[in-house]
Amino acid sequence: MTTSPSASMTAYGVLADQTPVNQVTLTNSNGVSVDVINYGGIITRIETPDAKGEMGNIVLGLDNLEAYTKATTYYGAIIGRFGNRIANGKFTLNGTEYQLATNDGDNHLHGGVQGFDKKVWNMTPFTTQNSAGVTLSLVSPDGDQGYPGEVTTEVTYTLTNNNTLDMQFIATTSKPTIINMTQHSYFNLAGKGDILDHQMQINSKAITPVDGGLIPTGELMDVAGTPFDFRTAKAIGQDIKASNEQLKLGKGYDHNFVLKDTPSNELVEAATVYEANSGRTLTVYTEEPAVQFYSGNFLDGSTQQASGLVHNFRSGFCLEPQHFPDAPNQPTFPSTTLLPGDVYSTRIVYEFGTK
């Protein structure tokens, strides 16, 4: 007997200022389920079946609200206004220089000290015949973290009966500004151990190489003949210890992989991951021109979750679809400018499967 998709809301916790935080549990007709809290729009849990049909959580998460408020790892969060790094936290738009909050050395990372990952969103669950979802909305005031313009944004997570989590991001602004949103879930398809044996394919023939501050140099680097060539599936750990300057700078993989020669709103397959012991697969689709592949190089075992999974070095990986890092300061990169009257729109899809 198949059940109808469901979306149920429960109390999750209370912030220090007494703001209540809720959690929505989305479940599809196949028993796949996703938990989302309205603090940061964080995905705290994704349960999918393995090849034997046994359910298990495939994302890194924390066990309570206080842990999420203290975390600096962006577990499962909505990232904005600007994903990834902006050099020295500065950019110039229409002749005006803006200074953003710096929270990664001299640089601005993932929206600043209080980015979208640290905000309380409005949250409305919904169901349709073939899906369960939640719509999150937020107004970011003019000057928030140094950004110009009041930005109104809406993120919708839709869990379908096709075992996809379809995510739509929309934003508008009152003044010219920049925006580059993404989702920051850490995956471990085995639900335990490290991710070095996961087989990954990334449909990219070039990365944007970085300097010592992990800021793009402005060039494109062909992946052929380098540890960054994932055009054919290989283990994440196969080349991660290779003698390579870019791997040294990133302490592993923490790089922007180019997916499109020219930006478009076409949904493309960015990457596919397979974990042999569980048989689980993850495929990531996006409208974005690039994806950041991060191999969990800064996880240090200081956090864990109730399942017993300790967040050790490389115990999770991220695939964060995005525009290129530092794009406002790199004239050859696709633009991240949003103007009043225009609508920022992008889409990311996680497809869960087994083989």
Rank of each mutant, 00 (worst) to 15 (best):
T2G: 03
A11Y: 14
P20G: 07
N22H: 13
G31K: 01
S33H: 10
V36E: 11
N38W: 09
N38S: 14
N38V: 14
G41S: 15
I46R: 05
P49G: 06
D63Y: 07
D63L: 04
T72D: 12
I78M: 09
G80H: 08
G95C: 11
L100F: 01
T102P: 04
N103I: 01
D104F: 10
D106F: 04
K118A: 01
K118C: 00
N122H: 04
M123R: 00
G133T: 08
G133S: 06
P141T: 12
P148Q: 13
E150A: 10
E154I: 14
T160K: 10
N161L: 01
N163G: 03
M167Y: 00
S174L: 09
S174R: 05
I178L: 06
I178M: 05
H184M: 04
L189M: 03
K192N: 07
G193W: 06
Q199V: 00
L214V: 06
T226S: 14
A235D: 11
I240H: 09
S243H: 12
N244R: 12
K248T: 15
G250I: 13
G252D: 12
G279A: 08
V284L: 15
Y285S: 08
A290T: 14
V291K: 00
Q292W: 13
G296M: 13
N297P: 09
Q305E: 15
S307I: 09
G316H: 11
L319H: 00
P321Y: 03
N329E: 04
T337G: 02
P340M: 07
V343N: 03
E351C: 04
K355E: 14
